[in-house]
């Protein structure tokens, strides 16, 4: 079956909102590439109404930082981790006004975190422009202990919290920004299929 997973958000790509009073652009690692591509097609003056919040993860972090800065956004913030980036985003959203357009680009867990912050302040997820760049790694919630395991690239994997061996179910929660992990050998303990690197 080739149908998309219906609970998983789609990430159709960034496009410039010419009417926004503030373009709040949150990106991580390779997601900076999506912002640079956006710049190539954005109308004049777009970045003078933009704030870029960049989480400089990955090997190309500093190169991207220079390129993003050269877009001359009204505000440019560089933060060292997803946690600090989300803390800053929370603060910016708390005082954001009508006419703010939110953009998110990077890995799926990163976009998921941005959407969680948006949800918390009542922004409709469908109004956020998103683009998936970089690793296909996933954040997984263990359905048994509820612990979140970050940076999962293979299935099955070991829950970082309770230690059960989980397979990744094709089901996504926007509220948690995570896929669901379910015990793979619940019926016959120890009977575990080979590990597949599904989300490199």
């Amino acid at each position: 079956m080739t149908e998309p997973m219906l609970s998983r958000p789609r990430y159709p790509g960034l496009s410039a909102d010419p009417h926004a009073k503030l373009n709040l652009i949150v990106c991580e690692g390779e997601g900076a590439g999506a912002v640079l591509d956006l710049a190539a097609k954005a109308p004049d003056g777009f970045f003078s109404r933009a704030a870029i919040l960049f989480c400089a993860t990955g090997a190309s972090g500093s190169t991207y930082q220079t390129k993003l800065e050269s877009l001359q956004p009204a505000n440019f913030w560089v933060l060292p981790s997803i946690a600090t980036a989300m803390f800053r985003l929370k603060g910016v959203l708390a005082t954001a006004t009508m006419g703010t357009r939110l953009y998110a680009a990077g890995t799926e867990p990163f976009i998921g975190s941005v959407l969680q912050e948006a949800l918390a302040v009542g922004i409709d997820f469908k109004s956020v422009f998103t683009e998936h760049r970089g690793s296909a790694k996933r954040r997984i919630q263990c359905v048994h202990c509820k612990g979140l395991t970050e940076d999962v690239t293979a299935s099955p994997f070991t829950c970082a919290h309770c230690g059960l061996t989980l397979f990744v179910r094709d089901h996504y929660s926007r509220r948690l920004g995570a896929f669901q992990g379910v015990c793979v050998d619940a019926e016959v303990p120890g009977e575990v299929p080979p590990v597949e690197e599904l989300y490199p």
Binding site: V143, H144, L164, Q180, V182, C183, A186, E187
Partner: peptide, 8 residues
Amino acid sequence: PENYHKWG
């Protein structure tokens, strides 16, 4: 599913 590892 929460208890699947117990009843599976």
